[in-house]
Write a protein that binds this DNA or RNA. Structure first.
Length: 336
DNA sequence: CGCCAGGCCTTAC
DNA sequence: GTAAGGCATGGC
């Protein structure tokens, strides 16, 4: 069996004393695919193995991950297409997945089950998490309405860039921007007669210029993305390093990157670093606080975040937050 | 036209 | 530490 080394620094800085190939010398991101011949592996993960099941539409189109595309091209168009595949290009592999009557069906360049288990948190026990939720009408309604929504775990660097792009932007357009960055600067992967694009590495993205990214529609976020990519590429910090810190220190650490404030830092904590207690205070959650939890508003981000975290049950407060966010954004609960 | 979208940065106090 | 103003872009 051929052994391929897929190594980049999206996940963390190179370890000392180890050999690691780095993707370098990529100009304008038109790098070639590492995979020449194609083969397909398939499989199905039975629903009975997933506590609480999974709803791919809710999990992937709820505004937490922007790394996926949909085979019918209708991501975030508000349509649910059970027959459509969700597709992810990651670490040189392509994974397709959809939910069927039997379970979670997948097609991939490789054995996709471990990738799916990690990325879609298939080992989370949803009924246990729901049972842990506070006695609160809004949270309970959100959990009851969107069963099968799971948190994701995305690569830290990808998430860092995606949520820098998220500032003052609707989820549909965040997804467009992230997809565009992958298409323009990410490594190509051929699979099943089609071309996919991995998300760019720090080196690949640091080679972009501010004017290029402005031309791609990133607006004032363009210099933030370029500078942050350069910081990571130059080893001035890495979002994965925040994993080793206590939650609030991790959030503070992440704000060293340009374009990252407390809210974006919280999103990275929740969607990439598995700090399940993180509650990002975006416009929707702030509206929810004003309407439903006015006593949690303590002015500063840190104090308000701490209060709503306790109100949402502490350990899995970020899970509750993600359900409530989706519940409000889709208009299934109202705020003032 | 104005308002809003998973906010952040700089500057002033 | 907190408050105000500026900042791109597109949908409605």
């Amino acid at each position: 069996m051929k052994v391929r080394l897929i190594v980049d620094c999206r996940y963390g800085p190179p370890l000392r004393g180890t050999h690691r190939d780095r993707v370098v010398g990529v100009s304008k991101g038109k790098s070639r695919s590492r995979r020449s011949e194609q083969s397909m592996e398939t499989g199905t993960i039975p629903h009975t193995e997933l506590d609480g099941g999974i709803n791919c539409y809710l999990t992937i189109e709820s505004g937490q991950t922007y790394r996926w595309t949909r085979s019918d091209g209708e991501l975030y168009a508000g349509s649910r297409a059970p027959e459509a595949w969700y597709e992810l290009a990651i670490d040189g592999e392509v994974v397709r997945v959809r939910s069927t009557d039997d379970g979670l069906e997948w097609e991939s360049t490789t054995d996709a089950e471990p990738i799916l288990r990690r990325r879609l948190r298939l080992d989370d026990d949803l009924p246990a998490i729901v049972a842990d939720a506070p006695d609160d009408t809004l949270v309970e309604d959100a959990y009851a309405t969107h069963r099968g929504l799971r948190l994701v775990t995305d690569p830290p660097f990808d998430t860092l860039i995606a949520f820098i792009c998220s500032a003052q932007m609707r989820v549909e357009r965040i997804n467009e921007m992230v997809t565009t960055l992958a298409t323009e600067y990410g490594t190509q992967i051929e699979f099943d007669g089609r071309t996919y694009h991995d998300f760019p590495t720090p080196d690949q993205l640091a080679a972009a210029t501010e004017s290029e990214l402005r031309d791609l529609g990133l607006g004032y976020r363009a210099p933030y993305v370029v500078e942050t990519a350069r910081m990571v590429a130059d080893g001035e910090g890495h979002p994965a390093d925040a994993r080793d810190l206590p939650y609030e220190e991790a959030r503070e650490y992440l704000t060293r990157f340009v374009g990252v404030g407390e809210k974006v830092a919280d999103c990275i904590c929740l969607f990439a670093l598995e700090f399940d207690e993180a509650v990002p205070l975006d416009t929707w959650i702030r509206k929810a606080i004003a309407t439903y939890y006015p006593d949690c508003d303590h002015g500063s981000y840190a104090k308000t975040s701490r209060a709503i975290r306790e109100r949402f049950g502490g350990t899995y407060a970020g899970y509750a937050q993600t359900y409530v966010f989706h519940h409000l954004r889709t208009g299934e609960a109202t705020v003032d």
